[in-house]
Amino acid sequence: MSEFLAAFFTVFNVMLFQNTLRTATPIVLAGLGGLFTDHAGIMNIGMDGMMLIGAFTAVMGTYYFQSAFMGIVLAIVVGVLLGLFFGLFVIKFKSDEFIIGVALNIFAGGITIFLLRTLTGVKGAFPLPKSLGLPTVSIPLLDKIPIINELFNNNSILVYICWLLVIICYLVVYKTPYGFRLRAAGEHPQALRSIGVSPDFIKYSASVICGILCCLAGAHLSLGYLTQFSENMSASRGFIAFACIIFGRSNPIKVFLAALLFGFFDALGLRLQNIIPANLTLIIPYAATIFVLVIAALQSKRKSKLSELKLNKV
C-alpha cells in the first residue's frame, strides 16, 4: 500500500500542476488565435504548421541575434505573413480551407527541416544555450507562499502574457465593436456589408491574429518550454488546440479551461513515464482529445434535442 502511495505521490504532486500550466500554454495561445478565425467562419486546420514555423523562426531569430526578444519579434513578423498568406488563399481565392490547411502543415514540416539542415547543418534537433531561453518572471511577494509560489511564480514571460491574452481576447470578442463585427463576419457577412464594413477585411484581420498567436505558441514551445528546435516539435498540438476551440465553443475563457485540461493530460503522461512505458503515456493527450470531442458532440446533440422538445410543446 505504501508503495502504491509513493507511486501516487510521484505522479500527483505540485510538479504535475506546474507541468500542466507549462504544457497548456502553447495550446492556449494557439487556441486563442484559432478562435478568431473560427468566429470569422474560417476552419483553420493549418494551426499546427503555423506553430511549427513559429517555433523555428523563434529559435533562428534568437540564434542569429543572440536574443530571445528578437526571436519573438521575428516569430510575430512571420506570424503576420503566415496569416496574410493563409487569408490570401482562403478569403481571396476562396480555396478549400481543408486543402490549404493540410498543405500548410506539410509545407511547414518540409520547410523547417529543409532550412534547419541547410542553415545549421543539423539533423533532428538544434539546441540553444539555456541562457538564451525566454526570461522567467519572479513576482516579489509570491515566494513567501509555498505552493502558489511553485505554481505561479518564475514561469517564462510568455506564460503570463498568455494569461493576460485570455482576458484581452474575451473582452475583444464579446465587448468591442470589432468583436461584434468579427462574429458577424462568420455568421452573417451580408449584415456587415450593409453597414459598410468589408467582411473580407475582418476575416483577414482574424487570420493575421491567428498567425501571430500560433507563432507565439510555437515560440513558447521552442524558447519557453524547451530551448531548442526539433523536427516536427509541434506534435499535433495545433490540432489539440483546434479541439479546444470546438470544446470551448470559441469562447476564450472556455478555450483556456479546455487547454488546461489537455495540459493536465499531457503533464500526467509526462509524470507517469516513471511507472508506465513512455510510448503508452504519450497516447494520453491524444486519446483525451477524442474523448472530449465526443463528450462535446453528445452535449450539443442533447441540447438540440431539448430545444426541439421545447419547440414542440409551444
Binding site: 486546420i45 481543408f98 506534435a235 499535433s236 490540432f239 489539440i240 483546434f242 479541439a243 470546438i246 510510448n279 503508452l280 504519450l282 497516447i283 491524444y286 486519446a287 482529445t289 477524442i290 470531442l293 465526443v294 458532440a297 453528445l298 450539443s300 446533440k301
Partner: peptide, 21 residues
C-alpha cells in the same frame, strides 16, 4: 455525432503509432 473527422483521425494517428512502437 458530427465529430470532426479531421481532428479525430489525426489524433488516432498518434495513438496507433505510439501503440505499435
Amino acid at each position: 455525432l458530427g465529430v470532426n473527422e479531421v481532428i479525430t483521425t489525426i489524433m488516432m494517428n498518434s495513438i496507433a503509432i505510439y501503440l505499435c512502437v
